[in-house]
């Protein structure tokens, strides 16, 4: 693990964006740039918790013929290349529910997934997801939000989840987050039951990371990387795109970690 006062980064990517080959090199670059965990999103047609950057990435991926099967193959490949980096799968309920939660989680386990984040399967309406995760030795990672009532947050933090993803503010992914005392108090409350807190939503800069560092186990950043990919991707020139994107992603990861 990284040294004491350096924050760990959980870097988010959309499997297959901007295409399967480049998204593999994005995963490499994130690890190269210091990411300790990867959160891999499987694109869904109706990503209602995501902002424009991730929406666009998901839509583009689906338009190119993305399937869950390809997503799992992608994860397997990333796992093979980076066996020491825990991989967390993020998606929406529909993708897990359609094939059956049990079989979805079994498949996830097979390709090396260590945890799942499915925001629209909350911990008390999880359709058997928590049990399936337990059975397969995968972490169910609930998403806490500052708008939760203290009672509900308490229920979540006392439920012995290994990790809790803490959304730093209301709303959707993407737009910038200001971190203030209230944010930090919220993060401490999320951690109060002993869960490892993954804090994200609108993290773009090393400065934000620094102010979060004593209050989270890892910071999560996603849209910021998607924006780098979108900015540097030129479908006319795959080879050049791949190189440019990889170096931009690596630099951005380093910047966010503050290393």
């Amino acid at each position: 693990m990284s040294n004491q006062n350096q924050v760990q980064l959980m870097a988010h990517l959309v499997a297959g964006y901007p295409n399967l080959a480049i998204s593999l090199s994005v995963a490499d670059a994130l690890v190269q740039g210091g990411a300790s965990f990867l959160e891999i999103q499987l694109a869904f047609s109706d990503p209602s918790a995501d902002g424009p950057a991730i929406q666009t990435a998901c839509a583009s991926t689906l338009a190119k013929g993305f399937t869950t099967k390809k997503g799992f193959e992608f994860i397997a490949e990333v796992n093979q290349r980076h066996p020491n980096i825990p991989l967390f799968l993020m998606t929406y309920a529909s993708l897990a529910y359609a094939p059956g939660i049990e079989s979805f989680i079994k498949k996830a386990k097979e390709v090396g997934v260590k945890g799942v984040i499915i925001p629209d399967l909350p911990f008390d309406q999880d359709e058997g997801l928590i049990a399936a995760c337990q059975k397969n030795g995968i972490a169910y990672i609930p998403v806490a939000a500052p708008s939760m009532t203290p009672e509900r947050l308490h229920k979540m933090t006392q439920a012995k989840f290994t990790y809790i993803y803490a959304a730093l503010r209301a709303g959707i992914t993407g737009s910038k987050t200001t971190i203030d005392d209230q944010t930090l108090r919220f993060l401490d409350a999320v951690a109060s039951g002993g869960a490892k807190v993954l804090g994200g939503f609108g993290v773009r800069t090393g400065e934000q990371t620094k102010s979060l560092s004593n209050h989270v186990y890892a910071v999560v950043a996603g849209s910021v990387f998607i924006n780098e990919i979108t900015a540097h991707y030129n479908p006319q020139n795959e080879v050049e795109s791949k190189i440019k994107i990889a170096s931009a992603i690596e630099a951005k990861a380093k910047e966010i970690i503050g290393g």
């Binding site: 918790a49 998403v143 939760m148």
Partner: peptide, 9 residues
């Protein structure tokens, strides 16, 4: 109520 936690309250 299959919604992200943010919408629960």
């Amino acid at each position: 109520k299959y919604v992200a936690e943010v919408l629960r309250r």
